[in-house]
């Protein structure tokens, strides 16, 4: 890309570009501004799994906690890492990497042979229809606000045997894979 092309590219407005300051500045100067402002952004919690960045709607997240001692459940499905005791509440903790094909074998994080969890790892406690459930994430990236126009629905069966990817969000150059918690945690 030549320097001229880059300049030209920067000149054009892209729908996922954050130009709110510019729009505020331009309010009233033409009929376009108010319509764009009406688009309500949704807040997502972004987190990392392996090298990829994922996000879930922040309203489905009950809390985020450090990885406690996990107790493995014998003869359970492989994506069930174990159970944790969160202030007296018993919560199952799941691994979604298997389902997303990010890894081949479930990590050994529960039981006597498990090592210390990585410092950045967290458990997201998600609200689901079958009650709260914990999801192991490698690190939490933060909260992102995505407008509907920044989200493209993913073609069905993008990856995994289930359609647990609800869509792709794009903000600037960062790509967020939007996870559907119900599908990702379905047995």
């Amino acid at each position: 890309m030549s320097r001229f092309e880059a300049l030209l590219d920067a000149f054009f407005y892209r729908p996922d570009e954050d130009v709110s300051g510019l729009l505020d500045f331009a309010v009233g100067s033409d009929g376009l501004a108010p319509r764009v402002l009406e688009e309500e952004p949704t807040e997502y919690l972004a987190f990392r799994l392996e090298t990829e960045c994922y996000a879930v709607p922040i309203l489905t997240v009950r809390e985020i906690c450090k990885v406690p001692l996990l107790t493995e459940i014998p003869r359970a499905e492989p994506q069930l890492l174990g159970v944790m005791n969160l202030r007296g509440e018993l919560l199952p903790v799941y691994d979604v990497k298997l389902r997303l094909r990010l890894s081949e074998v479930p990590p050994l994080v529960a039981g006597p042979d498990a090592g210390l969890p990585p410092k950045a790892a967290r458990i997201l406690v998600l609200k689901t229809q079958d009650g709260p459930a914990g999801v192991w994430v490698d690190s939490v990236a933060g909260v992102v606000r995505l407008k509907p126009s920044m989200v493209e629905l993913s073609p069905a069966g993008l990856r995994g045997d289930r359609d647990c990817v609800a869509g792709l969000g794009r903000k600037g150059s960062q790509l967020y894979i939007l996870l559907d918690p119900e599908q990702a945690l379905a047995p």
Partner: peptide, 22 residues
């Protein structure tokens, strides 16, 4: 074990023995 884990066989529940370990 409740809702999501009710299908687990051979385990009726969990308890805390006082050392914060389930």
């Amino acid at each position: 074990l409740g809702g999501r884990l009710s299908g687990v066989k051979g385990i009726s529940g969990a308890t805390d023995l006082g050392n914060r370990r389930t």
